[in-house]
């Protein structure tokens, strides 16, 4: 079953917490992965890989660089999830 926006943000928060050690409550739609959440370009790849598994989406490398904020990633997953 497709995840809701709320579920996706919650899932991303857990993933970011696991990979970058950022508290889950800090992971909000308007937060930038690199500037606010200490997720650099390589951690971002790990976040994407984990999100693909969790939400059953494919996020190709060329799309990853467009996902600047948690909101960008949430919208992408909402649109592309199977």
């Amino acid at each position: 079953m497709a995840a809701t926006q709320e579920e996706i943000v919650e899932g991303l928060a857990e993933i970011v917490n696991e990979i970058a050690g950022i508290p889950v409550e800090d992971v909000q739609l308007d937060k930038s992965f690199t500037d606010d959440l200490d997720v650099d370009s390589l951690s971002m790849v790990e976040v994407v890989v984990a999100a693909e598994e969790r939400f059953d989406v494919k996020i190709p490398d060329e799309d990853v660089k467009n996902l600047k904020t948690v909101g960008d990633a949430t919208d992408y997953i909402l649109k592309h999830q199977a």
Partner: peptide, 12 residues
């Protein structure tokens, strides 16, 4: 190399 692609393959 395509660093990101290789990194993704390696970690996953």
């Amino acid at each position: 190399q395509e660093g990101q692609a290789v990194f993704r393959w390696a970690v996953f």
